[in-house]
Design a protein around this nucleic acid. Sequence first.
DNA 1: ACAATTCAACCACAGTTGTAGTAGCCTCAA
DNA 2: TTGAGGCTACTACAACTGTGGTTGAATTGT
Lengths: 148, 148
Amino acid sequence: MTKEKPVRLTRLELEVMGAVWALGSASVREIQEQLPERKRPAYTTVQTIIYRLEEKGAVRRVKKIGNAHIFEAVVTRKAAHGRLLDELLHVFGGSPRSLMAQLVETGQLTLQDIRELESTLGELELNKSAKGSGGGEKQSRRAGRKAK
Amino acid sequence: MTKEKPVRLTRLELEVMGAVWALGSASVREIQEQLPERKRPAYTTVQTIIYRLEEKGAVRRVKKIGNAHIFEAVVTRKAAHGRLLDELLHVFGGSPRSLMAQLVETGQLTLQDIRELESTLGELELNKSAKGSGGGEKQSRRAGRKAK
DNA sequence: ACAATTCAACCACAGTTGTAGTAGCCTCAA
DNA sequence: TTGAGGCTACTACAACTGTGGTTGAATTGT
């Protein structure tokens, strides 16, 4: 199974990972150019970050084209995002609700959004229960918390 | 309006701020003791953090009891949480939805939760439009002094 | 085959964070 | 008044972060 140790990514590392996720696999140069020009670090800076990410096991070299190494993500975007979310939740006292509440209060999430999400979610739930269990899903389910 | 410069709080700083927010106002000793014993740093560590928070303008000394300074938060919990949320949203591509989606996918947020939130929110919206905007919704003011 | 490009590998370095020790001032109880 | 113990103010310091320079090897166009 996918037993991953919790890699902690810093802001810049996340930025770079974002580029890697977007590109699938790429060279340092490509990754650098993928970053928004406004805050694009020097080539060597990106290189350093990639190396650190490699040490952390977040990316790996897959092959070599010309003299350039091609990297790809080992840690999935979902996993990384999940980690971040968990940390944020901890700060928010562990409750996803207060988090949502905050989003709503600041107007970053509207009743509209919620309704849409709800219906979309409703369908998903339906599909899921309709198809029963398949086989390929390896997503970590750790449901079971406070019920209703 | 509350024009605050974006103070960036680290994990430990947030932990300490959490204690400060919970206590209302307190001495370093009280803050330290408020932290969960499992990961309770040494007194001087908390002291250092408080000083750094003071420099950052996140807390301030309000008075002195005996020879101990009493601190209180300057940055509100809401402001700090908002900041964090914004940063997280940025990582999530700016969309609160993908964030929610992730919460749902990992089962940390159920359809139930959403429905409840939705109705609660519905009421809030009503109140808001009924009262107009403006409002100084100050959060719970608790200042339980218990100096020895 | 060579010069011009590109990369990879290292190295450097200051600022931030987490963690805590020490010296000495203050207060309060006796 | 005096001593004990709590607090403050400093100091230390290693690991982690953000940023990028330098050097020399690999690749490529001509």
